[in-house]
Design a protein around this nucleic acid. Structure first.
Lengths: 340, 340
DNA sequence: TAAGAGTAGTTAAGCGCTTAACTACTACGA
DNA sequence: TCGTAGTAGTTAAGCGCTTAACTACTCTTA
């Protein structure tokens, strides 16, 4: 591979001149620039990124930290959609993406992650840090790397989805349809901040319409389809008079619908079901699913833009991404219910 | 950040000694090792990866190249599952993953990708190169970086899923159930080698059982759920006597099932449907889906192991990952059909 | 007892690039 | 005529690490 020196020799200038011309430093004649560019062409020169990183102190690498909490990291399409927003922004700025998946347990993060963070390999970080019991941010802060968090852990720069409002809207929607006996398919507390926020929204809307939060029948799943089935089986057996089910994500909602059918309940005629996320299948299932759309690519995009603006010395504001209630076929007015 | 020199000074040895002790070079007394390790502890030293990369000529970065062909890259859970297999292997070897998503068009790859490949930043590459009309491998070969391809583009080291056998098994399964009128939901040719292989398998099994391949009713989708619906609508309208549908992936199969229902066909009583991939929803849909399971994490794992063995100077054999027919509820014997 | 083999560490070159500090030349106003 | 400002390029230090080549000491063994 040709180096700067080869180019410089060929162009008849110093390596400093080549380096500066390539980084668009002013004060060079057109003819010098020409000579350099021609030599670059002829030699097929490409800068050696490790050398550049060492000399300049910048690596042009952003780390994308997706902690490996529950096994779902590599199962959840949500992750991929966030990446979809991150990638073009990075590419556009000439930055590369290092995918970092630390093992996150109650006792902290793994050693490999620590090394990587402290190795000077990474210019900036986008983290997906959203589990209450642990955080990947601490070593990053310690090392002083600029970081944007997509999630609820508090740090200087954050992007969040408006989960609270999403939860609120779901409950509000069901109440407006006349539902009074509403079951909840939740997840275990302390698993996920977003889920907690969604529940806060659900409860707030319940209270706003005069319902008692404590009396809402609840089952706990783990975001998976099968757990949705199990929870629905449990809830419908214990509370046969339920007319609606709020599920904290779409996959559990789809499972719940299957299970309800097996138990002889027609959806939505006898049971309304709502989900959260608006995964692609929500629009294609039978019945199509009423849900909350959170714009994952946009969150990735916003986070990346924030990161680059931090890297440029600015101090951007944190972002709250709006959500949207998508009403489809899985919800309907309660039979004989009184619509307000 | 402390450097090797700080550690060396504190330990009272030369930087070479520290470097060698840390890389487990023989011929050092226990006491020297101790002094060094203690100094490392006290200073909190971490090697600077860019400096190490420059000096040693290795970056400890493997590139994972997922070309951005159709927009599906960030939508397809398959990708994530391949990563699931790659990540632990890399992590175990102390390597990091650089996620590379070149824009791949008929006119080649984008400039940023070219730069990255030629920049000396990457020790080895795992590519997912599977579109007939273009390839990301050429610049990699030119630069001489060790590469393993997950897909059908020919290169020294390859990992493939046995798509041919998968297709064969699907057709064989339906034939064994007595189906004779079978529709195909295909994708456009030249989009994906795997799809082509699957079709070859389907056709081979058809011929083996004496069917005429040309007469198989076929519609072309694009792997999406909605395209599955559209294709099913088309096929069932044009060929009302179909008793079974082979879909080249699960998402199209799920769409086809929905559409068949809407058109008054019960699945599987009046129409058997099979998919390909075994995505999580295949086991949770209603009816559950008969499909072919291809082990994506395993493919990632095998590819990564091959890469490291290449990096160690070995020449591993290419791998063909077996597939498995998963029979579920969406297929049944044809009514009044004669089972062999 | 001297040559070779093994052990334990040091010296210093250099990986390829960036950039502060410097030289040198031209132009121009006071 | 001198001083200053602007323009155009060079010199050389150094980023933090690895490693070939070297020194120096201690055993063996013929």
């Amino acid at each position: 591979m040709p180096t700067l020196e080869d180019v410089a020799r060929k162009a008849g200038v110093s390596t400093a001149t080549v380096s500066k011309v390539l980084s668009n430093t002013p004060y060079f004649t057109a003819s010098t620039r020409d000579k350099v560019m021609r030599a670059v062409e002829e030699t097929g020169y490409m800068p050696h990124l490790a050398a550049r990183a060492l000399a300049a102190g910048r690596t042009c690498i952003v780390g994308v930290v997706f902690p490996w909490v529950y096994d779902g990291i590599f199962t959840d399409p949500h992750i991929l959609h966030i990446l979809e927003g991150i990638e073009p922004e990075c590419s556009q700025h000439g930055y590369n993406i290092l995918l970092i998946t630390p093992r996150l347990t109650t006792s902290g993060v793994d050693e490999h992650y620590l090394q990587l963070i402290r190795s000077g390999y990474i210019d900036g970080i986008i983290a997906l840090d959203n589990v209450p019991f642990a955080s990947v941010l601490e070593p990053i802060h310690k090392k002083g790397i600029p970081v944007v968090n997509i999630g609820y852990h508090v740090t200087s720069y954050m992007v969040r989805s408006d989960d609270y409002t999403g939860g609120y809207q779901l409950m509000q929607h069901l109440v407006a349809l006349g539902h009074g006996e509403i079951g909840i398919i939740d997840v275990q507390p302390d698993l996920n901040y977003s889920a907690e926020e969604r529940m806060k929204g659900v409860y707030a809307a319940a209270e706003a319409s005069g319902m008692s939060v404590e009396s809402l029948p609840t089952a706990r799943g783990d975001f998976s389809v099968t757990s949705g089935e199990a929870c629905a089986a449990d809830l419908l057996a214990r509370h046969p008079n339920l007319t609606a089910l709020i599920c904290l994500n779409d996959r559990m909602a789809l499972g719940a619908i299957q299970q309800a059918r097996r138990m002889g309940r027609q959806v939505p005629q006898q049971l309304s079901v709502v989900g959260f996320d608006d995964i692609p299948l929500a629009a294609a299932s039978d019945p199509t699913l009423t849900t909350i759309r959170s714009d994952a690519p946009r969150m990735g995009r916003e986070a990346t833009r924030m990161l680059f603006s931090v890297l440029n010395g600015q101090t951007p504001d944190s972002v709250l991404c709006p959500v949207q209630l998508i009403v489809r076929q899985s919800t309907t007015a309660v039979k004989g219910g009184c619509l307000t």
